[in-house]
Design a protein around this nucleic acid. Structure first.
Length: 514
RNA sequence: GCUCCGGUAGUAUAGCCCGGUCAAGUAUGCGGGCCUCUCGAGCCCGAGACCCGGGUUCAAAUCCCGGCCGGAGCACCA
């Protein structure tokens, strides 16, 4: 090998492994998620467990995408599993909103179920645990129970014999006991440092109909029991979740071990947050009730509907996860710019360019009679063009008009060069000049007489640190060129020198980002 | 309060497990330039970080101890 000269070496390399020859990569190799521990290609089973009790936010979307990406990498299996064992919190409409949300994000799942589908199974496993002495019925009050758990002691119920517990369990199931009268607890380790192991409640009576199951069941498993069983019966090999569940691992494992079920591998990481944007449902609900934001799809919010309404595209979310998301326990507070940058690059080749003039100022043209201007809809993509009929007046952005003084020259984009003659009653009087674009000549977008009024909502971060940002939603008003009438709602356009905006409805756009 | 877990540029990360190739890579943001009939995209250049203190070692971003700071959990919610 040493005797080969460089040329020969490269020649042979280009045949066997051309990728090694690629120039010192200018672009960083595409970033991706780290490998999953102990993952076997074709044998990875994952699960996406939303609670259908509220709107989906970007954190949920990221979790979905993470699972989806691993499903693809390992040719694995992904469950969409609704964690709906609290009848009081679950609302029927949210099941669909998650399905739709994940679908929009491009997440593909192989099968779907709800934890509430397997009530009989939970009962069966419970019976076995009663028989082996790992479960007991307790009728202490909540306060009493909290005291015991804090002090690391057990109550007298735990020492009753199995027959006593089984009798009461049957009585719970039959509906003879009312809510709060008794619960089923796990015979754990009352003195464990991990308080989740101090005889937690695994079943309770809930006197409230379930949106899917009606009033068929009154005894409901808590999260830990349902999740422990479901992860096992679904054959889940890897549980990807946020680290607030860290303390439950040992409990869920213990439940499964006592039933002879297999435990999954856990990958736990901190939650995903965006600066200035509350993601918790509780906080969002509060902001809506206080009237601070308009609703769940208020463009300032971090819900999926809000992001979508704002012009964030699903590809950008997926790309963001690959590029910037790490499954580590350290705190993350993403800056919106990171997402915007990716979104912008995806939108750039697709968004038609249009002229919008905020705070318009009238310009009278001298020496340029009625003309029809043809302007391309995109500077580099082949998107065709639009024509603009012009008379003797046009409008330009107020901020540009303010800077212009008599004698100044500027160009109306795709149209004509002008020289400012003077200011007359707030109207700029200009004279047309010969010639086309010149290096260094200021180019300004414009709209003709008769253009429609347009409002653009410009959302900003809701919070600055802890402080509510009182100017988080500005409205910019201006005029837009006639072609805008052809734009369909939901389309992102770029208003030149203003930014990318999405059409929300007639006469209304939402600013996506610069 | 108790228990866990973290801490690499403004932000997000790579590297840390298996100490040297790291006078720390990437993206974004920021500054400058080029290009462009946009303040967008693209291209080039630049500034910018290993929380602090000890220890181990020939050698520490990487291992150990302490401190500081941050986060999470301590529900008949998930």
């Amino acid at each position: 090998m040493n005797s080969l000269d460089r040329q020969a070496l490269e020649a042979s390399l280009s045949e066997i492994a051309p990728q090694l020859l690629a120039e010192a990569p200018k672009k960083a190799a595409e970033r991706q998620l780290p490998d999953l521990p102990a993952a076997i290609d074709g044998a990875v089973v994952l699960r996406l467990p939303p609670e259908p009790s509220g709107y989906m936010h970007l954190g949920h979307a990221f979790h979905g995408i993470v699972n989806h990406l691993y499903r693809e990498r390992y040719r694995g299996f992904l469950w969409l599993r609704f964690e709906d064992t609290n009848p009081r919190k679950v609302r029927p409409e949210y099941y669909d909103s998650y399905r739709e949300g994940y679908r929009w994000c491009g997440v593909k799942w192989d099968a779907e179920k709800s934890n509430s589908d397997d009530m009989e199974l939970y009962y069966e496993y419970a019976r076995r645990l009663f028989e082996s002495g790992h479960l007991y019925v307790c009728s202490c009050s909540k306060e009493e129970m909290a005291r015991q758990r804090a002090e690391g002691v057990v109550c007298s119920h735990r020492s009753m014999d199995n027959t006593w517990h089984l009798e009461r369990w049957d009585s719970m199931l039959s509906g003879a006991m009312s809510e709060g009268e008794a619960v089923v607890r796990f015979a754990g380790d009352p003195r464990s440092q991990n308080t989740a192991l101090r005889d937690p409640v695994l079943f309770r009576i809930v006197d409230h109909p379930h949106p899917l199951k009606g009033d068929r069941y009154v005894v409901w498993p808590t999260y830990d029991f349902a999740a422990a069983i479901q992860d096992a019966v679904c054959g889940v090999t890897h549980v990807l979740r946020t680290s607030e569940f860290m303390f439950r691992d040992a409990l869920q494992d213990a439940i499964r071990e006592r039933l002879g079920l297999k435990n999954p591998v856990y990958v736990e990481y901190s939650r995903f947050e965006f600066e200035g944007t509350p993601l918790s449902r509780r906080r969002i609900r509060e902001l809506i009730e206080r009237g601070v934001v308009g609703g769940w799809d208020d463009p300032r919010l971090g819900t999926v509907t809000a992001a979508r309404r704002r012009g964030i595209v699903p590809e950008a979310l997926r790309e963001f996860v690959k590029s910037y998301v790490a499954l580590t326990p350290s705190r993350k507070l993403y800056s919106w710019e990171l997402l915007y940058s990716i979104n912008r690059k995806i939108l750039d080749p697709k968004a038609p360019r249009l002229f919008f003039t905020p705070s318009p100022r009238r310009v009278i043209l001298r020496g340029s009679e009625g003309r029809v201007v043809t302007a391309p809809l995109h500077p580099s993509m082949d998107m065709g063009s639009r024509t603009i009929e012009v008379g003797e007046t046009v409008y330009i952005p107020g901020s540009d008009a303010e800077r212009l003084k008599p004698g100044d020259r500027f160009r109306l984009k795709y149209f004509v060069n002008l020289r400012v003659l003077g200011l007359d009653d707030d109207v700029l009087v200009c004279e047309a000049e010969e010639g086309g674009p010149e290096p260094g000549l200021q180019v300004i977008q414009w709209v003709p007489e008769g253009s429609a009024a347009l409002r653009v909502l410009v959302p900003d971060q809701l919070f600055r640190g802890e402080e509510l940002n009182l100017e988080s939603l500005r409205t910019v008003e201006g005029l837009v060129e006639p072609y805008e009438a052809k734009i369909a709602a939901g389309t992102v356009v770029q208003f030149e020198r203003f930014g990318y905006c999405i059409k929300d409805g007639p006469g209304l756009y939402i600013f996506t980002h610069r």
